[in-house]
Design a protein around this nucleic acid. Structure first.
Lengths: 202, 202
DNA sequence: AGAATACTACCGACCGGTAGGTAGCCGGAA
DNA sequence: TTCCGGCTACCTACCGGTCGGTAGTATTCT
């Protein structure tokens, strides 16, 4: 059972790693850099984490679940379709705003090299997100708010893509792009489309 | 002026690097691995490229322009808005289909760590793409096919996001997802929206 | 009470290996 | 002879990880 002092050290290592992994990437960040940033000796890192990869994994695991919970809460909201889609997008944005570095590292794991030690983690995480959003789409289809001629999975992916690219832009630019207003705008574009007529081909 | 033999060696190095950078990431790929895969000795790589970073940069430069040309051709197409949006999405998809590894590496550079040597390259590339698509959106707005209450840049970003997530999924899964049919579907969703009513908030 | 033992939370020095890159050399073609 | 297109052997620096140890604290035993 780690005492208070140990908890501090462990957190310091995680935080240092989070910032460095985001800024330099996992592979280009050395253990020496992490421990320097955390102000500890290198073996101390191995006291808490089996190795560098387990450090990265702990960082991911301790944040994935938090975001899943927040998204679940957003999906559980009721109301107009626009409001619900907005809430889903906003759940993504606010998580990103809270921790830009971590989001960056998560994206690196999700869409990075296949041989990365985190490849599996990232794919599983994103599949999980999409299933959740897909279930929300199905619900909106049942209540008639969403078109039924396109499957829920496809629509969930589409919405994810619309939110994701803005998060990626924010990660790069750090210009406070991810507003509630933008969430609303994305929700509207998603539901209403960009075209000027309702010329459905179906 | 390198002769035929030299051109072969250089290409072999580029191809080996492309596959390895995609699969393992730039930083986790050693020069030794690249030259082994290319079947040359390590100093031979330095005969053609200043260093590892310049190798990566050559790989990117020699493919960015190719894609820009293809997208430009897609944008230059005339016709119905749905067809034109579809052509834009398809330009992305077909480039991706042609070289999955290279696309993966491009994405890694575009949205990877800020301190990466390619960070600038990726941002510039994506900004350039968006400007091109944004110009296409403006044109569609002028001819009345596209709503004017949302700016062209925003809509261009939205369309990029819709295409991008599918390319990322294809990179991960390699299930031949990127079809002309999907391009069409995305174009329709983009223009028509996912909602069942035309309840614009105007 | 004091000594012995066990545990937590670290550390300096070191290990074996490999990273990116270079010096000097060679063979073949023109 | 010169130049191109390589190569062997080697360099310095650094990589992730380990070994043997210490300091402080808590608990148990005599």
């Amino acid at each position: 059972m780690a005492g208070k002092k140990g908890t501090d050290t462990r957190q310091r290592i995680l935080q240092a790693a989070s910032a460095l992994f985001a800024e330099r990437g996992f592979d280009a960040t050395s253990v020496r850099e992490i421990v320097e940033a955390a102000g500890v000796a290198k073996p101390a890192l191995y006291y808490y984490f089996k190795n560098k990869v387990e450090l990265g994994r702990s960082l991911l695991a301790e944040n994935f679940e938090e975001f899943i919970d927040e998204l679940q809460a957003a999906i559980a909201q009721t109301g107009e379709a626009t409001d619900r889609i907005e809430a889903i997008v906003w759940a993504h944005f606010s998580a990103c705003n809270e921790n830009l570095d971590l989001t960056r590292f998560i994206y690196a794991t999700s869409f990075g090299p296949g041989a990365s030690p985190f490849s599996r983690d990232g794919v599983d995480f994103n599949d999980r997100l999409r299933r959740m959003i897909s279930a929300a789409m199905k619900e909106l289809q049942r209540d008639g708010s969403i078109r039924k001629d396109m499957d829920a999975d496809y629509l969930a992916t589409s919405l994810q893509g619309s939110a994701q690219i803005w998060m990626m832009l924010e990660i790069k630019r750090k210009q406070s792009l991810l507003t509630r207003k933008l969430s609303r705008k994305i929700a509207r574009t998603f539901l209403e489309g960009a075209g000027t007529t309702d010329g459905r081909e179906a």
